[in-house]
């Protein structure tokens, strides 16, 4: 898996929206397999028209977040890959002082941030932040 900087570069370097989305969907395809039994109602992120599942845990030895996820749509899954790469391996305090939304703004993916959008990037980001606050 690429880290967030590599992912950022891989999208930012694309010419034209088709190439950009091709790369985003490729990132989605490269996400590690999300086990079917984990696709429970509790794991669903509400507020997304597409289905999005997250599984979150803390790595006991390092205190860092381990999060995996999946979506039934190609584009949201690709966007999810960006979010997961951004938050994975961060400690709780780092999660609170950084914001993946700025990455989306810089990559000119702001249309995916609109509250009416079915793909609810905000909802996914909030689910991760809430998890890190509650545990």
């Amino acid at each position: 898996m690429m880290n967030i900087e590599e992912i950022y570069k891989s999208i930012a370097s694309q010419q034209g929206w088709q190439a950009k989305y091709r790369q985003i969907m490729l990132l989605g395809k490269q996400l590690p397999n999300f086990p079917e039994p984990l696709k429970t109602e509790e794991a669903r992120v509400s507020g997304c028209e597409s289905k999005v599942w997250l599984h979150l845990a803390w790595d006991e030895s390092t205190g860092c977040l381990v999060v995996i996820g999946d979506s039934d749509t190609r584009i949201v899954k690709g966007l999810l890959a960006i979010i997961l790469a951004f938050y994975n391996g961060k400690r709780s305090d780092e999660i609170h002082t950084s914001d993946v939304i700025t990455v989306f703004k810089e990559l000119d993916l702001i249309q995916h941030l609109s509250p009416s959008r079915g793909n609810g990037i905000h909802a996914i980001q909030k689910a991760i932040v809430h998890f890190s606050q509650d545990s």
Binding site: Y21, D72, I75, Q111, G118
Partner: peptide, 19 residues
């Protein structure tokens, strides 16, 4: 997925509804 289709159609300037 309808959302994938509609998201990409949007970039062609086409407004459709999904869901």
């Amino acid at each position: 997925h309808p959302i994938d289709v509609a998201t990409l159609l949007d970039h062609h300037g086409i407004a459709v509804r999904t869901g």
